[in-house]
Amino acid sequence: MIRSPSSADGLLFALASASLYGFNIVYARMASFAGASGSAIVVYRVLLMLVLVGIVAAVARRSLAMAREERGKLIVLGISSALQGIGYLSSVAFIPVTVAAVVFYTYPIIIVLASPFVERTPLTPALVGIVAVATLGVCLVVGPAFSDLDWRGLALAFGASIATAIQFFAAARCTRTGVVAKVFWIQLIILPTAILISLTVGQLAPPSILALAPFAVTMTIAGYIGGFVLQFLALGRVTAVAAGIIFCTEPVVAALSSAFILNETLAPMQIAGGALVLAAIMANVLLDQRRLKDMPKHRRQKREPVLREEMRETRN
């Protein structure tokens, strides 16, 4: 089957977005070495995002009003987004990028485990098998070097994974507010949350802290914004399922770039564990694709916009 140019462009945009996100976390670790904390980077990244969203809203004449009935859901979405960003960026100050990426990318598995309780979907043997493979993969990555890994980094990465799962569930219930307005309000909620966390852990610093590692900080923020914009472009051209498969390349890019840029290495067993996690995530996405095909047409048409919206919100 020959893809349309729009679909082909979407796949390229998704691949570029995943790559930028993968590079982003590597430079966040470099910034942490110089003393620029993950929470501080998130604060100033959000400020920049708010300015950019404001400009887009003004130029495109988009409303920033939120749906009244979704205010509570947007608050949950904003707080979980803040915890995801701060947790993931902060984790690499304590553990290698590859380990952080593998632990963080367990969030699709958390979604699978939580779905029977949140969405009332059945936990099938196939899903149980996927969860088992992913859990084994994480154990292989973390286990051989557990005594040498800082528990704080593991806790932050896993906390970010849980926050991302909450993002997905909240986003699926927040569909009446426009995308531009949603991004604006989410970023606005992230800002005080990030400031409060920074104050609590004593890491709130003036903008001058970004000058400690100007190149790494610039690459971290630019990588996030570039990945975010390309993700939106991709999701306008391909399905969320296709994008989900491509975004599985992000931890691979993070692992390869950390090896080349930071000279981080993994034991063969850890590499095998990362491959298992990646395989489990891809199997989960493909399984979801099969479920969509088996759905009655009217239910599939109703669910596709939700899947697309979930992927849009997962990086806000």
Results as ranks from 00 to 15, higher is better:
I79W: 04
I245V: 14
I221V: 07
A216G: 02
T239P: 06
A172T: 10
M49N: 11
F232W: 09
H298F: 11
M66A: 15
T135A: 15
M219I: 08
V118Y: 09
R45D: 05
Y107F: 15
L154M: 03
G72K: 02
F158S: 14
I281A: 13
F94I: 10
L199T: 03
I190F: 14
V42S: 08
L20P: 00
V229R: 02
A181M: 09
S161C: 13
S80H: 04
L230N: 03
A16E: 11
L156N: 07
L199K: 08
V112R: 01
R290L: 12
Q187T: 10
P125V: 02
V118E: 06
V118K: 06
V131M: 07
M311S: 15
L20F: 11
V53F: 04
L12R: 12
C174T: 14
T135I: 13
Q187L: 09
A126N: 12
A213R: 00
I110A: 14
A222P: 00
M269F: 11
L136R: 03
M311R: 10
G273D: 06
N284T: 12
F23R: 01
S90A: 12
V285R: 12
P206V: 08
S258T: 06
A14H: 11
E310K: 14
V138M: 01
W185N: 07
S161T: 10
K302A: 14
A171E: 01
L233I: 02
R61L: 15
R173T: 03
V51H: 13
S39K: 06
L149D: 03
G153C: 09
L204E: 04
K182S: 15
Q289H: 15
I55C: 10
I209Y: 06
V142G: 00
